[in-house]
C-alpha cells in the first residue's frame, strides 16, 4: 500500500504494523465487514416481510393458512437456529436444483438421489458450472440471506402477531362502528398502531440478528470469522513478508469489540426511535412523556 512497505523487515514496529494492516489480505477482512453490514441491510427488511406474512397467515380465519402460519412460527422457534442454518442452505439449494431439473431435463430417467449422491443434469446446476466465480459467491450469499430471512422471519412473525393483538380493542370496535370492513380495519387501524407494541420485540430481534451474523461463516461465506482465522494463524517468513505467531486471539478480540460497539450503537438508536414512537400514544410511556413535557 505505502511505498516504504516494500521491505517490511527493515521497518520499526509502528510502521511495520501499519504496513501489515494494509496488506491485500487485510483488505479482504475489511471488505468482509461490509459483507456483514450488507447481510444485515438485506436481511432485516426481508425478515420483516416474512414475519409480516407469517403473522397475517397465523391470524387468518382460513384454517389451513392459519395452521401454516402457526406451524412456521413454532417450528423455527423450537429448534436450535444453527440447525436451521445448516439445514436450509442445503435444502434450498437442492430444492431449487430439483425444480430446475424437472423443468429443464424432463427426459432424464435416472434417480436424483443415487445412494449418497444428489445428481441433477448439467443444465439444472445452480449456478451453472460454466458461470464465473463471482456468480457462485453471489449465489452462496443469496442462499445465506434467504436462510436468515426465513429463520428471523419466524421470530419477527411472533413479535408482529403479538403486536397486532396488542392494539386496543376499543380502536378496532370504533373502526367497525364507522363501518370499516375487516380489510380496512387491518390496514388503516391495526397496522399503523402496532409498531409501538412491536418495537421492543423487533429491537431485541435486531440485536439478536447482529449477534447471529458470525454464523455466516458456517454457511461457507468468507466473512469476518473466516478472515480472522485465516489472518491470525501463525505465519512463517517463508510464505509472507510479515511473519508472526498465533494472533488469532487478538483478531477475535477485535471482532468482540466490533460487535460490542455495534450493539451499543444500536441500543442508543433504538432508544431514540422508541421515544419518537411513544409520542402521543395511549400507553404508560406516552403518558410519562406527556407529563414530563407538561
Amino acid at each position: 500500500m505505502f511505498e516504504h512497505c516494500a521491505a517490511p523487515d527493515t521497518l520499526n514496529s509502528f510502521h511495520w504494523m501499519l504496513c501489515y494492516l494494509t496488506t491485500g489480505k487485510h483488505m479482504g477482512l475489511y471488505i468482509s465487514f461490509g459483507t456483514v453490514l450488507l447481510l444485515l441491510a438485506i436481511t432485516a427488511p426481508s425478515a420483516l416481510l416474512f414475519g409480516f406474512g407469517g403473522a397475517v397467515a397465523a391470524r387468518s380465519r382460513f384454517f389451513p393458512l392459519s395452521i401454516l402460519g402457526r406451524g412456521y412460527i413454532s417450528i423455527v422457534r423450537g429448534v436450535p437456529d444453527i440447525a436451521f442454518f445448516l439445514f436450509f442452505v442445503i435444502a434450498l439449494d437442492q430444492g431449487l436444483e430439483w425444480l430446475r431439473h424437472k423443468w429443464k431435463c424432463p427426459e432424464w430417467t435416472d434417480a436424483i438421489w443415487q445412494g449418497n449422491d444428489f445428481v441433477v443434469c448439467q443444465a439444472a446446476k445452480l449456478p451453472l458450472g460454466t458461470s464465473p466465480q463471482w456468480m457462485h459467491e453471489v449465489y452462496g450469499f443469496a442462499l445465506a440471506v434467504l436462510t436468515f430471512a426465513i429463520v428471523f422471519g419466524a421470530f419477527a412473525a411472533n413479535v408482529l402477531y403479538g403486536a397486532m393483538t396488542a392494539v386496543p380493542k376499543a380502536q378496532i370496535e370504533t373502526a367497525s362502528a364507522y363501518g370499516m370492513s375487516n380489510r380496512q380495519t387491518f390496514w388503516r387501524i391495526i397496522v399503523p398502531q402496532m409498531w409501538v407494541y412491536a418495537l421492543p420485540g423487533l429491537g431485541n430481534l435486531w440485536m439478536v440478528l447482529i449477534k447471529a451474523t458470525p454464523l455466516l461463516f458456517l454457511l461457507g461465506i468468507e466473512d469476518i470469522v473466516y478472515w480472522a482465522r485465516e489472518l491470525g494463524g501463525t505465519k512463517t517468513s517463508r510464505f509472507t513478508d510479515y511473519p508472526h505467531g498465533d494472533w488469532r486471539m487478538w483478531y477475535f478480540l477485535m471482532l468482540l469489540v466490533f460487535y460490542l460497539g455495534f450493539t451499543k450503537l444500536s441500543e442508543l438508536v433504538l432508544d431514540r426511535v422508541m421515544t419518537r414512537l411513544t409520542f402521543g400514544q395511549a400507553t404508560a410511556g406516552g403518558e410519562a412523556q406527556r407529563r414530563a413535557n407538561a
Partner: peptide, 22 residues
C-alpha cells in the same frame, strides 16, 4: 453483563478457545 450479552456467543467461543491456546 454488557460484554457477554453484547457480543455473539460464537465469537466468544472462538476468542476463548484461542485465548486458552495462548
Amino acid at each position: 453483563i454488557f460484554v457477554f450479552r453484547g457480543s455473539p456467543l460464537f465469537i466468544q467461543f472462538f476468542f476463548a478457545y484461542f485465548l486458552f491456546l495462548a
